[in-house]
Design a protein around this nucleic acid. Sequence first.
DNA 1: CTGAAAGCGCTTACAG
DNA 2: CTGAAAGCGCTTACAG
Lengths: 345, 345
Amino acid sequence: MVKRNISTLHDVARIAGVSPGTVSRAITRPQLVAPKTLEKILGIIKKLHYFPDPAGRNLRSSKPTVVGAVIPKAGISTFAQTIADLNDALEAKNITLIVSQPEFSSAASELAAYRLLERGADALILLGDDHRPELFEMLDHRALPYLLLWTTKKLKDQPYVSVDQIKAGQLAANHLLELGHQNFAYVGIPLLHNPRAAARLAGVKKQLNQAGILLAPNAIIEAAHRFSSGRDAVERILNNYPATTAIICTSDYHALGVLRGLYEIGKRVPEDISLVSFNNNDFSAYTTPAITSVDLKQHDVGIHAADLIIKLMHGEQVKSIQIQPQLCVRESSAQIKKSAKKIML
Amino acid sequence: MVKRNISTLHDVARIAGVSPGTVSRAITRPQLVAPKTLEKILGIIKKLHYFPDPAGRNLRSSKPTVVGAVIPKAGISTFAQTIADLNDALEAKNITLIVSQPEFSSAASELAAYRLLERGADALILLGDDHRPELFEMLDHRALPYLLLWTTKKLKDQPYVSVDQIKAGQLAANHLLELGHQNFAYVGIPLLHNPRAAARLAGVKKQLNQAGILLAPNAIIEAAHRFSSGRDAVERILNNYPATTAIICTSDYHALGVLRGLYEIGKRVPEDISLVSFNNNDFSAYTTPAITSVDLKQHDVGIHAADLIIKLMHGEQVKSIQIQPQLCVRESSAQIKKSAKKIML
DNA sequence: CTGAAAGCGCTTACAG
DNA sequence: CTGAAAGCGCTTACAG
C-alpha cells in the first residue's frame, strides 16, 4: 500500500490558529464564519491543496452522494449512451455514479446490486423488472431509494423510467403495413431473457394481427445481439420464408448485419426487401441505405433517470415516466413493388 | 433526506453476544475467529442483511478502493468500450471506477480530476499528456498513483498505456501506397486539440514522404468528430483536390460519413476511391463496403490500464505499455485502376 | 481466540 | 462568531 501524506482538517486548523470546527464550517457553511477568519482559512486550504476526506464526511453527515447502477451486458454496449448521460447529469449535481455491468442473469444482477451497496451506493438504479422480491425487501428495509429502468410491466408502487416498447413495435409494423407489405420476418434478441425485445415483438404482432396478418413462427429468428448474427440470420429468413418482403429487426445492430447479409446475397434494400429496426443508433442515418428505425430515446431515459433518482434520494415523491418512441423513416423501407405483390396473391 | 434504518456492526455484536472487534474480524479475517463463534456471527449477519459501511471502513483502513478516470468527451463516445473494459477489470478486483467526462479542455480536465479526488478517488487515470505540471505536483504530494492513457509523447517518469499512433498512420498510408495510390486526402478531427489524431496524421505524412508524396495542405480536411462531418467533408475534398483516389479518415465515424458522402455523389468505393480509417469500430466490418481500418486496440488499453493502476495502487513498480496497432484490410481499399493512374500522369 | 480501547477525519448541536 | 466535545461505523494493535 502507498503511504499517504495528506493534510487533514486539523492541519488546516492548527496552521490557521482556529478550531477544527471552524474550518469545517468555513468549508460547508461559510456564511457562519467571520469574513477575516474565512479568508485566512481559505488561503491555507488553497496553499495546502486541502480538501475534505469523503470517508470522514460521509460517516458523519450521511447525505446521499453515490448512485449505483446495475446495467447487465447485452452483447453490445447498448446502454453506453444512457450511462454516459446519467453520469453527466448526476455529476452536475455532485453525485457519483458507480456502474456494474454483470452478465445477463437475475442472480448476477442481484449480487451486483449488493456489491454496489457495499461499495457505498446510497441509491440504486436497476434494469428491467425481473428482480426477486427479496431484493426490494432489503432495499425497503434499509430505506434505500431505487429506480427501475426500461421496465415492461406496468408497475404501481415502484418508480420507473421506461419506453413504450409495445408502441415501438406497433410503429414499426404500421409503417411497413402502410407501405403495402404483407409478408414479414423478424430478427431479434433471444426473447426469453429480454422482456424489452419481447414487448417490441408483441407490439409488432399486435399491429399485424389487426391487419389480419400472422407472423409465422418460423419467420421469427432469434439471434445473439451482434452484427454477425444479423448477417447470418438472412439466409435462415429466406430459407424459412422466401416470400418475405419486409424484415423487422429488434435493434440497429442486427439491422446493419441484416443489411450486410442481404447485400452479400444480392438482395436490394428497399427495392427487394424493406427493413425497419429499433433504437435509432447514431450510425443508422449514415449506412447505405440509411436505416428506418424507431427511436427508443435512450438519451431521454438517462436524463429522466438522473432527475428521478435525485428526487428520490431527497425523499421526494416521484412520478414514473413512460417515454414515447418515435419513428424515423429513412431509406431502408419503401412501398412494396407491384411485382412482389403479384407473387404473393 | 431519507432516514436510514441500517444495522451496524455493533448491532450484530450485541445480538451475537460478542464484541464489535470480533465481528469485524469475522468479516475481514475469519481465520482468526473460532469456528463456532464465526458461524453464529455469520448467521446473524445474513439474517440482518448486514454489510459494513464503506465510509467507516475507509476511514480506518485506508486501503485504496476507488479509481477515478478523467476521459474528456470527444464528440462521440469514442472511449465507451475502454471505459467498460476498465470498469469490468477493476470490479473483478473489488475496485470501484468513477468516471468524469468533461468537455475537451485541459482546465476542465484538471477540475474534473480534483472533483474525483474529493469524491474519494485513491488513484487517477488521465487521458493524454496535455496536463499542467501543477496537477502532477499535487498528485505526487499526496502520493496518489496515476496512469496516463493514450499519450503521444515518450514519457520517462510517468506510467502510461498508449497506442503507437504514428505507426498506425504509417500502416494506413503504406497500405494505400502498396495499392498504387498517389493522390491522397485526409479527413480528421481538429488537430489542435487532439494530439492522437495529429500523431496519426504525422505517421501518414511520414510514410507518404518516404514515397516522395506530399500531402497537400488543402487535401487535409479538419472536421468535428461526427458522422455528418465526414459526409460533408466529401464535397470539399473533391473540390479542393479532384485527383484524389485515396482518402484516409482519422476515425471510423468519419469514415462511415465519408462513405455516405461518396455514395450520395455517385462515387464508388473502392472502384473510384479507396478509403482507409482508424479505430476498427464494431460496425466497420458490416458496412457496405466494409471499411479497411487500423485497429487501435481500445480493448487492450482498458485491460492493461486496469492492470497497471492496480499495481500502482499497491505501490508496485510498473512498466509503461505501448500497444501496436494492426491493419484490418476489408473492402473499402483496392488496387488503383489503370485509368486513374493515367489521369494523374 | 476474544475484548476493551483508541482513533481514522470529519460534522454538528451545544455553550459561550 | 467560535471552541470543546461527542460521535458517525469501522479496524487494529494490545493485552489477556
